[in-house]
Each structure stands twice: as C-alpha cells, then as structure tokens.
Design a binder for these strands. Structure first.
Lengths: 134, 134
DNA sequence: GTACTAAAGGATAATTATTTTCCTTTAAGA
DNA sequence: TCTTAAAGGAAAATAATTATCCTTTAGTAC
C-alpha cells in the first residue's frame, strides 16, 4: 500500500510522520493511541502527542482510518479497508478482522428503519482460541 | 421494572441514588454520564460525580447495564435488556434500539472463528428519518 | 427498636486523556 | 529559490475518570 498516494488523494501533505503513522497502523491492524505513540516515537523521538492526535483526527475526517470502540476498551484505529466485522477477545483485548459484508447481509432488516445508512460497526466479543487454552 | 429487586438480586445495596440512576437510564434508553449527572442531580442535589461513576462501574460489572460506544460519541449506558442492535443517528447523536437477534442470525458465520462468544455489539449509523427532513 | 459493620456516598485531590495555543519548521507549488 | 499555508513540537489548558479519605447508611443480628 502506497501511503504517499493515499495522503495526496485526500489533499493531505505527505510528511514523514504521517507516513510512519499510516505504516504502523497498517502493520498493527488495530492500535491504540498509546501504543501508536510508543512506536512512532522510536522513529521520530521528538514527535509530539499533539501531532499524533491531530493526525488521527485529520485521517478520520478524510476516511483514511477508522475508529474501533468497544466496552472496556480504549479506542483503537485501523486503516479503512473493505467492510468487515470485528472479533474482540475479552481476555487479551485484541481485535481480529472478521470478513463479513454485513451491509448486504442485513440490508433488508435495516431497510425498514428508514435511516439513511452510512456505516455499521459490529463487534463480537468473547474469548479467542489462544486464550481459551491458557 | 422493579429496581430494588434488580439490585438485591446482584447483592448490591438498595440506595435511593441507585434506584434513581436505574430509573433514569430506563426512561432515557441510552444516556451519557454527563446527561445522567445533570438529571440525577435534580433528584439528589448533593450527589457526587464519583458516586455516579462508581455506580456505573458496579452496575456494569453486575450486568445490570451495558455500555454502548460508537465513533465520535461519548459512551452511553442502557439497561441490559434483550439482545438488540442499535441505530445511531450521526446527526442528532441519538441511539435507537433495533430489535434483531444477531446471535442467531450470525451464529453460523461466527461459529467458524472458534471464539467462545460472549456478546456482540452492532451499530448501524446514518441519518434518522427526522434529521433527513430538517 | 438498637447496635454493629461492611458497603456506599460525598468532597476533593490526583491522574489520565485529549485539545488548544503559539511559535517554528517544512511540503508543495509558483 | 521564494512564498505560504499547512504541519510539527512544546507546553499549557481542559476534560474525563479514578483514587483517597472521611462520613453516612443499608442490611443484619440481636
């Protein structure tokens, strides 16, 4: 994935910090502000938390990334990809993408609500296979 | 709904503040800490925010209530009722219950993940009929 | 009813998370 | 290069949540 092009497409300046943030999100899958700051700080020791927050906001606004929230969890952020649900492990706190085109699946069910749908967030939470064993 | 019995069932002391909190949540459907504090303060002018937070936590732990989180929104709380999805209006920020037994609907899809499912959170967001008109 | 005790409430301080401010630096385009 | 609007960084300010500590009260036994 080419982060420079992605940024330019949304009229956001291409800065090394932004490329780093996108790259880390891409690699992590789902990452909290705290963890992201720890990691990005290794690449840019002087980066400010304010810079991170500002970029998260501008990326959210431009739909480059998505916020994933669940009960008991800090917000996590992911690159905006194809629609999918999330599996959340309540033990280790990790999200896992779960391919599921919920929109088509539930289209009919939601249709009767007369809402103009924009997006859906679906999180199934429980215990992942690994945590079930330990 | 009898809040006293609900509290006793979970070995929580029945205090006027708790009954008030549950009653307000029940009436509101989905309510933020801020709004809840405004309302409960009318009944108990000297109630402390700390008391509200403590009670929210103990009620969450005992599954009396549920936290509902969505992007761009503060957490809201609701009485724990039958499984349902949520419709979130991005315009007015209101949640609306959407009867949908997602568990049975998606049972098969999730089964292959080998997670031990505990619960699911589903939020469809868009613009509600009322906001579409204004 | 009275006494006892663990739990709950309230005030406040402390902590954590997020946003704002303000000044410096830099990417992008002329 | 030169210009400038946008972005970065440091620090202060604000907002949200949690912890502390002392007082009050619900629940239980008598």
């Amino acid at each position: 994935m080419n982060y420079e092009i992605l940024l330019k497409e949304h009229a956001l300046k291409v800065t090394p910090q932004r490329v780093g943030i996108l790259s880390l999100m891409d690699k992590a899958g789902h990452i909290s502000v705290e963890d992201l700051y720890t990691k990005i700080s290794r690449q840019f020791p002087s980066i400010s938390l304010a810079t991170l927050y500002k970029n998260i906001h501008s990326m959210l606004k431009n739909d480059l990334i998505k916020e994933v929230k669940a009960a008991n969890m800090k917000s996590k952020y992911e690159l905006n990809k194809a629609p999918h649900a999330h599996l959340l492990c309540e033990e280790c706190g990790e999200f896992k993408d779960f391919p599921l085109d919920i929109n088509s699946l539930l289209e009919n069910a939601v249709k009767q609500s007369h809402y103009k749908m924009h997006e859906s967030s679906i999180i199934f939470s429980g215990i992942c296979p690994a945590c079930q064993k330990s």
